[in-house]
């Protein structure tokens, strides 16, 4: 059920010389250019129906208009981004708090577990109509659906992260006579952090899905609403342009999460260790001299 913490390997990237890297980059470009060219060519000779699949140049044109001529995209883009991020925080805080409670209290865990299971097997997206009935057509229903989708991965990962804390380390803390409080903050939290973070990363993607799906169902603004308006008018070029904007939004949110992950869970990334090690050394020496000066 848990989403495993990232293995911290760069997929598709491997060690190699600069020449290899350059060659790989060129191959990527070549493949992309070939596909686009073939697609463009097929559209022009009439193999593809532009109403179904418009040529890449049409999509580019639509994209250009959305961003630089009419500028319609920005408002919708930020509305959806706001809904997704707000839902992420709300769902994340609730999921995290309940999981901490369940991790620390066995009774609470026992009684909350069945609900968590039912919750998990119910497709969250199917709740959309009810959520709209409850929260209305505005932002709040989008935020609510996003939060609902974020909740589960955060809850499950946080709980299992805490329940799977290294038993050897736990015994070591016990042998040192550590209090519950100190064990929680100095062992459980950092030890579970990679798995918790993985839950938040999945949650962030889910938040975006939740916000967009709720916009599909009923909305007057947002990127999902925009997409629907274009496709109702069979303006597939603009629809694809909006879709690409959703990818951009997804990439922005994902990159933010990755950066946060790299900062918080620094010890899983060998390349960051030397710099942090030096920083810690400086801090330690400063503490020593500060105390020595007193």
């Amino acid at each position: 059920m848990t989403v495993e913490a990232t293995k911290y390997v760069d997929l598709g990237r491997s060690a190699g010389s600069a020449a290899t890297a350059l060659r790989r980059a060129l191959i990527h470009v070549a493949i992309f250019v070939t596909i686009i060219t073939v697609w463009e060519y097929a559209s022009h000779v009439g193999h593809l129906n532009p109403l179904i699949l418009p040529a890449p140049s049409n999509v580019a044109q639509a994209m250009y208009e959305l961003y630089f001529v009419t500028g319609t995209i920005y408002r919708h883009f930020f509305v959806t981004m706001y809904e997704a991020v707000a839902g992420f925080f709300i769902g994340g805080v609730i999921g995290l708090s309940l999981a901490v409670g369940a991790a620390l209290n066995q009774t609470f865990r026992r009684y909350i577990a069945p609900y968590a299971v039912v919750f998990n097997v119910t497709p969250a997206i199917a709740v959309t109509p009810i959520i709209i009935a409850w929260f209305g057509f505005g932002w709040s229903s989008k935020i609510a659906l996003a939060a609902l989708i974020v909740f589960f991965p955060v809850f499950v990962n946080t709980l299992s992260g805490f329940l799977r804390v290294n038993p050897d380390a736990e015994e070591m803390f016990r042998s040192l006579g550590a209090s519950k409080m100190r064990t929680f903050f100095k062992l459980m939290v950092p030890d579970a952090a990679p798995i918790i973070m993985a839950g938040f990363k999945v949650g962030m993607t889910g938040a975006l899905i939740g916000a967009i799906v709720a916009e599909f169902a009923a909305a007057s603004e947002g990127i999902g609403f925009l997409m629907q308006r274009f496709s109702f008018h069979l303006d597939i070029s603009s629809s694809i342009a909006v879709l690409l904007s959703m990818s951009i939004m997804g990439l922005i949110l994902f990159t933010l999460m990755e950066a946060l992950d790299a900062t918080l869970i620094f010890w899983k990334r060998d390349s960051r260790l030397p710099a942090i090690s030096q920083k810690r050394a400086r801090r330690f020496r400063k503490q020593m001299t500060a105390l020595a000066a007193q």
Binding site: N166, D168, M172, D191, K268, A281, F284
Partner: peptide, 14 residues
């Protein structure tokens, strides 16, 4: 004091 078979160091600490 006890020392375990595994070093059980905390990875996030120097």
């Amino acid at each position: 004091g006890m020392m375990f078979q595994k070093a059980t160091l905390l990875d996030w600490r120097t």
